[in-house]
């Protein structure tokens, strides 16, 4: 399955590359459908914010339950899974709403849409800030770092036990490899887009390359000599 996926990505890049080089004047209909695109992003962004709030309330309410025996284990597992879903919704909402703020500003959308995207971004930023409070509600017995601690993320990692770190390490390593591959593919797509449309994406390519370099140097520096 993985090989089929890699083959597909390789084929797509090859096709787009050849297509881009052979046709130097392709116009993608972004401008024509920009309003519809922004409305779609607005709806997705709103949906993700609603899902984040719903999960926040649901977890807060259920975390108070007092159970024992097998039910206690099941509740703990439920809280863990729902908190992971909450984090995913919050993170996705932040990204989609940031994208919305960018597209609505750059494609000169009506003022109400630009203002709404700003409001959405503010709401999801606030929701992200209360995430540590929710973690405290999920694990009231654990000595979590103070929510206003400037080293919150570092201390949270330090207080995690070896099993939790094992799970995080596996997830982060997988994600790091995906980011490396996908940003590389992203650079190629931006190059082909630049060639095909004549609209230079050089700045974006330089930024992505700098991000790739920075994250890889950071990783190697962290593991080197340990």
């Amino acid at each position: 399955m993985k090989r089929i996926g890699q083959g597909f990505i390789g084929g797509l890049i090859g096709f787009l590359g050849t297509f881009a080089i052979m046709n130097g004047n392709i116009k993608l209909p972004f401008a024509r459908y920009s309003f519809e695109l922004n409305v779609a992003l607005l709806l997705i962004g709103a949906g993700l914010i609603i899902a984040t709030v719903v999960y926040y309330v649901l977890i807060k309410q259920t975390a108070k339950k007092e159970v024992s025996g097998e039910e206690e284990d099941a509740l703990d597992e439920w809280k863990y899974k729902k908190f992971s879903d909450f984090s995913l919704f919050a993170q996705s909402a932040l990204i989609v709403n940031l994208l919305l703020a960018c597209t609505s500003t750059l494609t000169e959308q009506p003022l109400w849409m630009i203002v709404t995207s700003g409001v959405f971004l503010a709401i999801i930023t606030l929701l992200s800030l209360i995430m540590p409070t929710l973690l405290k509600a999920v694990y009231p017995e654990r000595p979590l770092p103070a929510t206003d601690d400037k080293d919150y993320a570092k201390k949270l990692l330090e207080m995690s036990d070896e099993g939790e770190r094992h799970v995080m390490l596996k997830g982060l390593y997988k994600s790091f490899n995906s980011v490396n591959l996908l940003l590389f593919v992203g650079i190629l797509l931006l190059l082909f887009y630049s060639l095909a449309t004549g609209a230079s994406q050089l700045f974006g390519i330089i930024v992505i390359a700098a991000v790739l370099l920075f994250t890889n140097i950071q990783y190697i520096r962290s593991v080197k000599g340990k």
Binding site: E72, D73, Y80
Partner: peptide
């Protein structure tokens, strides 16, 4: 004993007990 109780006594998370 449930996983939560064992986790508390062994000073680890329930997730770690479950993984083991």
């Amino acid at each position: 004993m449930n996983q939560t109780e064992l986790a508390k006594r062994a000073k680890v998370s329930r997730q770690t007990v479950s993984l083991i």
